[in-house]
């Protein structure tokens, strides 16, 4: 669409590119400190509309916890207002005839609205622990820096290195992968949630301090009444075993074990922190 033209200025950034390679080169020149390459996920309303046209609320409800499930991929566009939440809500309403088919997806949009309201309330306070940690470990005992092997994707754990690679190359991760990676960092590696949350914001196209920081705190247990953790069985099931099959660490997987055993290993609390539903039902609360 034609832009209302202000008087020209040579320091305006260009609007015409022959290709994405040209845009990539311009960004490299203008922002040399910004790491990495372009994401295969394109910005803009046209790309967002293609994603929206593929949204299937009923399939989303059934399959969203699986890495290969029918998730929408709309989060980067919603985060930056390419679509407003109200527009997506209306699109979901138009696409369903029964309320039940849209309940889960509308619920997820509600989460986005909730995080934004929390941010409005807390302001820069979202950077701080909202509550005490319920892990039995002192907040000061969590390392303030992201471990280099996690940043490099060289932990030797196929799942975690795979999630890191996807995060860094595409700028998007399935919500379940975000939760597993966050739980691994905070509970297995004893890294403070803020180090992981800041790392995510470097890369996530939907990087939103409210959703991101408060969800990390939810995993860590300082925005929740218990820590979120998982075991190999859970990860394997919702990833269709794609990581475990060829994992060099499969023989000494740190996630192997029952929830009881892992809880004893990870946390230092006298009363059980877990509340794990029976196998086959929906997994514990997602973000």
């Amino acid at each position: 669409m034609p832009a209302p033209s202000p008087p020209p200025d040579p320091r305006d950034l260009p609007r015409l590119f022959k290709s994405r390679a040209e845009l990539n080169a311009l960004l490299q020149q203008e922002f040399p400190e910004a790491q990495g390459e372009l994401s295969p996920i394109r910005g803009g309303r046209k790309a967002a509309e293609v994603k929206l046209s593929k949204v299937d609320p009923a399939r989303y409800a059934r399959s969203r916890n699986h890495l290969s499930g029918a998730v929408t991929g709309l989060s980067p566009y919603i985060r930056h207002g390419v679509f407003s939440l109200a527009e997506v809500r209306n699109a979901v309403f138009r696409r369903i005839s029964r309320r039940d088919d849209g309940t889960k997806l509308i619920n997820e949009l509600g989460w986005r609205d909730f995080w934004q309201r929390m941010w409005q309330d807390l302001g820069d306070g979202i950077q701080q622990d909202q509550e005490e940690h319920k892990t039995g470990h002192d907040a000061g005992s969590y390392a303030p820096e992201l471990p280099q092997d996690v940043r490099d994707g060289s932990t030797g754990l196929a799942c975690m290195d795979g999630f890191r690679d996807e995060l860094v190359s595409t700028g998007w991760l399935h919500n379940h992968a975000r939760m597993w990676l966050a739980a691994y960092l905070v509970h297995w590696r004893r890294v403070h949630w803020r180090a992981g949350a800041d790392w995510f914001l470097e890369h996530l196209l939907d990087g939103d301090p409210a959703s991101n920081h408060l969800s990390w705190q939810w995993v860590a247990s300082c925005f929740s009444h218990k820590p979120y953790f998982f075991n190999r069985d859970n990860l394997e099931r919702y990833s269709n075993g794609r990581f475990c099959r060829d994992c060099a660490s499969a023989g000494q997987c740190p996630f192997e074990g029952s929830y009881d055993a892992l809880e004893d290993q990870l946390f230092a609390v006298s009363a059980p922190v877990r509340d794990v539903p029976a196998r086959g039902r929906a997994q514990r609360r997602r973000r």
């Binding site: 994405r20 845009l23 990539n24 960004l27 490299q28 922002f31 910004a34 790491q35 990495g36 390459e37 372009l38 994401s39 996920i41 394109r42 910005g43 980067p76 930056h80 860094v168 595409t170 700028g171 914001l201 470097e202 890369h203 996530l204 196209l205 990087g207």
Partner: peptide, 8 residues
Amino acid sequence: ISRKRLGF
């Protein structure tokens, strides 16, 4: 902020 985010 990475180049991915700027490009987006």
